[in-house]
Design a protein around this nucleic acid. Structure first.
Lengths: 197, 197
DNA sequence: TCAGTATTATGACGGCTGTCATAGATTGCA
DNA sequence: TGCAATCTATGACAGCCGTCATAATACTGA
């Protein structure tokens, strides 16, 4: 999976950074490697990202958060039975499919950034916070669309994201999609019960 | 929090490694730093861990898993009202207290190892799998003690660990214990409903 | 065509990493 | 005491890292 050449080099580098981060973590992801992966000239790194690795990583994480957020609406549109549980199943399904297709080598870049650079760089922590927010907000909106009371929706969104993130970790550790399937089945009744009507 | 000097240098180094990993991630944790933190001679590293950093990290992760597993029994013993929901609350409470006491600089070392070295080293991945298992098994046993049917207990244990891991990530990202409190409140009814009787 | 900006190329620098080689010190046992 | 095993000390090594300095090239608009 190479970065699409249709986009500019800057975008490709952000994309490649996100890809490498979610596979190897922030620390093990090198700038030279990002450039190579993006098929972008190494000299462009300091031109497009004068803030250095910190800037590049932060942009990659932020981008990943928005990407996850945008997918929510797409899930919502394609649900045969639009219920909160089905929406959650669509989220986990995406990961199950990816794990089955490409193995357990890659996880969530936001999780990787949270673990790797929360303690060190303040701006990196802010980026992870922004990314989670960009994911939570559309999910909350989707839940209200599915008749979850507005007062309850944010809490359920947090629960859903927390659970899927943890299940991704367990899935990678055990090299099995079972944790994702398990949490999906267990959480569905609770989620659906929250939808009034 | 320095490693207790009562233990031998080997144990202190494993402990210090776990501490540093959960703060900075695997990649950013250096061997020299581990030795310094453990107040152990640098020369002892190659003596006690001939397998190098990989061995040290794996032992630290494995140790962390068993540590988490052993805490389950302690939680269970001190619950005023022994229900699955209360057990989960005890688990999250531990993290809330720690975050409030020492800030959001440190997370779960098993999560860090999963994110940082699942793709690279096979033995590291096995260590994370072992660690999660050492955590899940006692939790499953505890749930059966709390009258959760044996057929259901493993799934709920997976759900609980997934959720707390994800909530830890969100808490660190947002620098707030709110996600932990939220998932605790939301999950309690589901967990308690699983207890027959 | 020319100026000016945007982009790319390349090499070097210091710093840190994990690992190894080698020698020294310490400990426990006979 | 003396030998042996365990442990510690220290320096060096190659490799990679992010960053910077500097120059060459490409492109854009007048």
């Amino acid at each position: 999976m190479t970065a699409p050449r249709t986009h500019g080099p800057r975008e490709r580098m952000v994309f490649a950074a996100a890809q490498l981060i979610r596979r190897d973590g922030v620390g093990a992801t090198g700038m030279r490697e990002v450039a190579a992966r993006a098929e972008a000239p190494r000299g462009s790194l300091q031109h497009y990202f004068p803030g250095g690795k910190e800037q590049l990583v932060n942009e990659a994480v932020t981008w990943a958060g928005h990407y996850a957020g945008k997918r929510i609406a797409r899930y919502l549109a394609t649900l045969p039975e639009p219920t909160p549980g089905a929406l959650f199943a669509a989220m986990t399904r995406q990961w199950i499919d990816e794990f089955e297709a490409t193995g357990f080598g890659t996880g969530c870049p936001v999780a990787a950034a949270t673990v790797d650079s929360t303690a060190s760089t303040p701006s990196a922590r802010e980026a992870t916070s922004t990314a989670f927010a960009a994911w939570t907000t559309p999910l909350t909106a989707a839940l209200t669309t599915l008749k979850v009371p507005a007062a309850r929706a944010p809490a359920l969104a947090t629960l859903m994201i927390s659970t899927v993130e943890g299940a991704i970790l367990m899935a990678r550790a055990h090299q099995s999609t079972a944790p994702l399937a398990t949490v999906t089945a267990e959480l569905a009744p609770l989620l659906d019960a929250a939808a009034t009507g």
